[in-house]
């Protein structure tokens, strides 16, 4: 049976288009019941893994290929620092550069007091040289300015997400991560905005759907957001998916496929 998914929305990244996409977001959204969760769990359990699996939109876009070893760099640190700096600002007119510096200082303080575990951002920041810290600050200011530029003209109340969405699939040694940067609270629900560098690839749609399913699973009542919007400021593009059951199902299926692909890769490597 052919599976249909709602079409991918595409607009130029302008304040007007973003506001329209938020205002026109459908009010009826999918809800994931306990039955849905059990079903998803059983599918993941059917794909055994010797180690804990961590799956996210990036892996869906890479057809299940696991990412290379993670290393902190100014580019990988900018999103956390930039978003945290934005959350520090009480109003958009506040000084962004100072907010980033305060955030970096907080991370360093945490490391000095011994609260930063090895491999964490604070731990890494504490070990870098002064000019590298300067470049990290520049990158974080760039990220924060760009994010603010994207959403400051949004009329509906919004806030910077305090963290990404995570869902631990019980008994399947699997954690799903959904990337989110801005949460727009509408009178009928919520619209989630995700900001990414570069330009959207061919698998940007499945990537958004996978973020949508994690956001839905992470909600205490399993309620999907009205819309999941991906912003690519470098390309000046917005892509979006609605919070329909078709999209949620498609996102869940892609995660299971990625787990299967990952297992195959692991088995090939082991052989």
């Amino acid at each position: 049976m052919e599976v249909t998914v709602s079409p991918l929305l595409q607009r130029r990244l302008t304040a007007r288009a973003l506001n329209e996409l938020i205002e026109d977001a459908p009010s009826s959204v999918a809800e994931m019941s306990e039955e849905h969760r059990v079903s998803l769990t059983s599918r993941f359990r059917a794909v055994p893994s010797s180690e804990h699996r961590r799956l996210d939109a990036w892996m869906i876009e890479q057809a299940g290929r696991p990412p290379g070893p993670f290393a902190w760099s100014p580019t990988t640190a900018r999103r956390i620092l930039g978003n945290n700096a934005l959350r520090r600002m009480s109003q958009p007119s506040d000084n962004l550069a100072n907010a980033v510096r305060d955030e970096v200082a907080d991370q360093l303080l945490r490391a000095v007091r011994g609260y930063a575990r090895a491999g964490s951002l604070g731990h890494w920041l504490a070990g870098v040289t002064h000019p590298v810290l300067g470049l990290i600050t520049a990158e974080a200011v760039n990220w924060a300015t760009q994010s603010l530029e994207c959403v400051e003209a949004v009329v509906t109340p919004w806030r910077i997400a305090s963290s990404d969405a995570y869902y631990d699939v019980a008994g399947a040694r699997t954690t799903l991560r959904g990337r989110r940067d801005v949460i727009v609270e509408t009178p009928r629900g919520r619209v989630i905005v995700r900001i990414r560098a570069g330009q959207p690839g061919k698998c940007a749609g499945p990537g958004l759907r996978s973020d949508l399913v994690v956001e839905t699973l992470a909600h205490p009542h399993g309620v999907a957001p009205q819309r999941y919007l991906g912003l690519w400021p470098d390309a000046g593009l917005i892509l979006g998916v609605d919070g329909t059951m078709e999209n949620v199902r498609a996102g869940a299926r892609d995660f299971v496929r990625a787990a299967v692909a990952q297992r195959r890769l692991n088995l090939t490597r082991a052989a």
């Binding site: 000084n95 962004l96 550069a97 100072n98 520049a138 200011v141 760039n142 300015t145 760009q146 603010l148 530029e149 560098a197 570069g198 330009q199 470098d234 390309a235 000046g236």
Partner: peptide, 14 residues
């Protein structure tokens, strides 16, 4: 800082 300076700003258009 009020000018919101950003450095090495990238753009890509297909």
């Amino acid at each position: 800082s009020g000018w919101r300076p950003r450095t090495s700003q990238r753009a890509r258009q297909l």
